[in-house]
């Protein structure tokens, strides 16, 4: 980026709200998570550890809040003072929401976290200086900092456990921020294969590790631009629009409701993850 380029195309480099005037042309990776199917089993989280070389920090560091779970299962109770949690729990897999107008991106002093052309919120480890401003500004607290140098920490990857490390994913050293990447290493391979074949990535051709493992299929992932993609159809039927911070469907009270919503949408982050509300039977 030369200075002239920087000055002339400043408005393109600036972070902006997503809008219909500047649509994603080829890819816009997005997810939807059905909370009525999610059982809270944690398989997605473990799969993420396996795929993305997440360090196991151990009890002491976990106690200090140094854990690395790019996708974490939150468990909420809705007792309203009743004696028992008699409608069960509410489980919520929380991962980086890959916001279209990501609060983390504007504040990074060095531009280590960026938006990619296919709608990912990317993290460039080599560029990160570790100011942690991105985490401070992330309303979902889905970013995880390398508080220690895990590759050299005892019992994180002792011989021969280091042989399990995925060579497609960087093993992060101390002092950099990291977070869910939507398994960008898989996306890159799929895109490159599709490009060689002269087409774009088909729906279902690439899966994130969490989606792949999920026993109830609660997670869908795909290209929102692709009209055949399941995830796009889900967003469409749920009337959740990526580029809106208030959904039209929420304005009116209808007898039959739609389940789709995005978390903390009112902060105008335009998340790329849509959740489908959990359901509970009223007859029992």
């Amino acid at each position: 980026m030369s200075i002239t380029n920087l000055l002339e195309n400043w408005s393109d480099f600036r972070q902006q709200h997503p809008s219909d005037e500047r649509p994603h042309r080829e890819y816009k990776w997005a997810m939807s998570i059905d909370l009525d199917s999610c059982t809270g089993c944690n398989a997605c989280s473990v799969a993420c550890y396996a795929e993305n070389n997440l360090p196991v920090v151990g009890k002491e560091k976990f106690a200090h809040g140094h854990s690395h779970h790019w996708i974490r299962i939150e468990r909420y109770w809705d007792n309203d003072g009743r004696e028992f949690a008699d409608q069960g729990a509410q489980f919520l897999p929380m991962l980086c929401q890959h916001c279209e107008s990501a609060p983390c991106e504007t504040v990074c002093p060095v531009g280590a976290t960026n938006h990619t052309a296919d709608g990912l919120n990317s993290q460039v480890y080599n560029r990160c200086v570790g100011s942690r401003y991105c985490n401070a500004n992330c309303p979902y607290k889905a970013r995880y900092f390398n508080w220690y140098d895990y590759p050299t920490t005892d019992n994180v990857w002792p011989e021969p456990m280091n042989q399990q490390l995925n060579p497609d994913v960087t093993v992060r050293g101390k002092g950099v921020m990291e977070k869910c990447t939507f398994c960008v290493q898989r996306l890159t391979v799929a895109k490159s294969n599709a490009r060689s074949a002269g087409r774009s990535v088909l729906d279902g051709e690439v899966q994130t590790a969490c989606q792949q493992v999920c026993p109830t299929g609660a997670i869908s992932f795909g290209n929102l631009v692709d009209p055949l993609a399941k995830v796009g159809k889900q967003w469409m039927t749920q009337q959740v629009e990526l580029n809106k911070d208030k959904q039209a469907k929420d304005a009116e009270e209808k007898a039959v409701k739609l389940r789709g919503y995005r978390i903390l949408e009112e902060l105008r982050t335009y998340p790329s993850v849509m959740y489908l509300e959990q359901l509970r039977e009223s007859a029992i």
């Binding site: 560091k61 200090h64 809040g65 140094h66 607290k141 508080w147 101390k174």
Partner: peptide
């Protein structure tokens, strides 16, 4: 050792 020794964490960055 890493920033962890300062007792900051993912909430208190």
């Amino acid at each position: 050792t890493g920033m962890g020794v300062s007792n900051k964490n993912n909430s208190h960055v």
